[in-house]
Amino acid sequence: MNKQTPLIQIKNLDLHFGAFHALKNVSVDFHAGELVGLVGDNGAGKTTLIRVLCGIHTPSAGEVYFDGTRVKTFHPKLAIDQGIETIQQSVGLCDNLSIARNFYLGREPVKRFCGLPLLDFAKMREMSGRVIRQFGLRENVSVDDEVERLSGGERQSVKIGRAVEFKNRVVIMDEPTNHLSVREREHVNELALQLRDQGLLVIYITHDIFQVHRLADRIVIMENGEKIEDASTETMSAEALEEVIRQGGRIVEKRDAV
């Protein structure tokens, strides 16, 4: 286990949406250079947890530290500025904008003309096209075409390309292989490992414990808004972890009692 200061440290995190208690006293550390699988059933709180990390939700209680400094204000802009890039399932792309415009949304390259910040279209087209085509964008689709026209896999390619292109420290992948072909899926998994090997923290969210067990250094399992397991993949097999999910954490409770 990595003994350095965690890149992200979450302490006793709680999040309420009205009467609904979405995250319950969650504490977990994430280190640079590791690939962590975040696993759990639907409604377990995986996506909600990463939405706190990428600044979309502000926690009701608890503390989040990034690189040793406590995060006091939560906003996606601040998270992106710190190098936290998230590939989310349902959000991240605006159908009405072109691929190139989506790719750079929020961090558009500009050229100054008489002091005015004008979009650097040449760079936007060239870079976005080059990066996204590696991840399966059809040759007959122009980066000037609207995202509305893309297939599910191509939409995912834009998000993944964006995560790779910018110099990030953390890449959070929320079900990144959904809608992808077998070959594209392998490509994404290889990429996750490459990013980890480059020293980035990769958090990989999935339902598929067997898939992520092959990749991850550590698996964190969530259930009903709580963390119920945090184990190294070297010490626990995929079958044992699957049993934890199936039992809803009861195995862990018994083990801890013993």
Binding site: C54, I56, L78, A79, I80, T86, V91, L105, G106
Partner: peptide, 8 residues
């Protein structure tokens, strides 16, 4: 929601 998630 997507714009917000991109830091807009």
């Amino acid at each position: 929601a997507s714009a917000h998630s991109r830091g807009v």
